[in-house]
Write a protein that binds this DNA or RNA. Structure first.
Lengths: 256, 256
DNA sequence: CGTTACGTTGAGGTATCTCAAGACGGGTGG
DNA sequence: CCACCCGTCTTGAGATACCTCAACGTAACG
């Protein structure tokens, strides 16, 4: 453990190449020894089957997570029994931070497909961060990025047109695929129409119709969960109020 | 600066009694000397007039803020020129954390009334936190609580019935007034109907009608911005799908 | 090859938005 | 003190986008 462990560094670089833990592991200023210490803390590649929960509402804060394979959703079930989707978590994206406020998870994390996750015990993370200022900064940044995704969600939900929400959702997803180093204009949705609907505050039929409409308008190609973005510009336009397909003048600026 | 300063401790305890910076200043394990160091960092009581901005979208992360008097809203203006309200910040609540992900503010903070704010330069906060593990933990917790408020916002926006959103909004506001030590069943709204609407993803008329309806049903009393919560239980019920007025028989979905 | 989950499409009802007019309340100045 | 103005809030009536209900198509799987 006191040896500088170049082997571990190499392995981490390889296996976590596109992982957001990279932000925690590999910033400048974290040397091999520090990294080795962190490495002993990360528990790697825990497998989960589709539909299994990683944590449930009320569970104490134990760790933060990153899927190395597969995606997750986080959901809350309200008193009326309806399920709301709070977020989707692609491979390489950190999640599970919802518990750092109260110490308890406010939602449930469910695997959308057979998955593998790395987990990083939070107490040890905090301890190490206290000793490594650079790691502390990285930790703050990663937390901030997680909050940014929540803001994106709010942004989507604030749109009052279903077509805007759907376009913005697809655009955001594309952006995130790009960021984790995957094709961003041709991908497989890890979630169902119903789950998208519960994320967007709509019903599944509306989502389906929205997809069909974007297809008709030549913005995307859809077949089931396969999505190809044909016209990214048009997608952005649709996300910002160019709601109706053939709106001749999508220019409306209200001012006071 | 190197003196232990019991006087400052006393002053901080008094002046920041209900302030969320308290969480950063006064946890067990932070002694007077530490506190003195923190005290030198907090800039206090900067005044702002109603409508003035504390920071704007794109501004670099400089500090985090707490209003000691007055309230704030954080807003984004989308390309179409519409203003979305991301959050309201009551006196004593920490805000401005939206920039820790990217280093730049993603929204604009506007005073809802004449206000005074304490600000805490972020770089120095991070430096001090690195030296004080207990402060680091408090910082994480405060950040987490801020994220919790964002989750509450998502929760509200996910409701598809306007009446639910409005009831949940009022209930959440009441809860927050309670937490900052103010009357939670009788208060003055710091924001307009229009601002509430832009927070809830509705139009102002719908908010107004929702208030009137809750008034008619004897759940609240409203006169302009003055709100009194008459029946908290009914408010909770309305927030969770007991949407329609006096439906004592909670069948599947009953419409009067 | 049947079963099952998921996705698409259609028709009709309804909540919310839009547009519009009026009421209230807090200021200002005569 | 009152008249007046302005921003804010309320209320009404009609248009519309979305939800509900329902049937059918499609794909994955044993």
């Amino acid at each position: 453990m006191s040896d500088p462990i170049p082997l571990n560094l190499a392995r981490l670089r390889r296996t976590c190449a596109e992982c957001s833990l990279q932000m925690l592991c590999l910033p400048a200023g974290v040397d091999a020894e520090d990294l080795g210490r962190l490495d002993t803390v990360v528990q790697r590649r825990k497998p989960l089957a589709k539909g299994e929960s990683l944590y449930r509402t009320g569970d104490p804060l134990r760790a933060v997570f990153v899927a190395s394979e597969g995606s997750f959703k986080t959901v809350v079930v309200n008193p009326a029994g309806e399920e709301h989707v709070l977020g989707f978590h692609l491979p390489g994206e950190l999640f599970g931070l919802d518990a750092i406020g109260s110490g308890q998870h406010r939602c449930e994390a469910v695997a959308l497909s057979d998955s593998r996750v790395c987990e990083l015990p939070f107490s040890q993370l905090a301890t190490i961060a206290a000793k490594l200022p650079s790691l502390q900064q990285q930790l703050l940044r990663v937390i901030g990025q997680s909050a940014d995704r929540d803001h994106d969600h709010v942004d989507v939900l604030s749109r009052r047109q279903a077509s805007e929400r759907i376009a913005l959702f697809l655009h955001g997803l594309s952006e995130r695929y790009r960021r984790i180093g995957r094709p961003c204009d041709d991908f497989q949705l890890p979630m169902s129409r119903d789950e998208i609907a519960r994320y967007l505050g709509l019903v599944l039929e509306t989502v389906s119709r929205g997809f069909s409409r974007l297809h008709e308008d030549g913005v995307i190609e859809v077949r089931g969960r396969r999505v190809r973005i044909v016209d990214e510009t048009a997608l952005c336009l649709a996300a910002n109020g160019g709601s109706d397909g053939a709106s001749p003048q999508p220019r409306k600026r209200d001012r006071a």
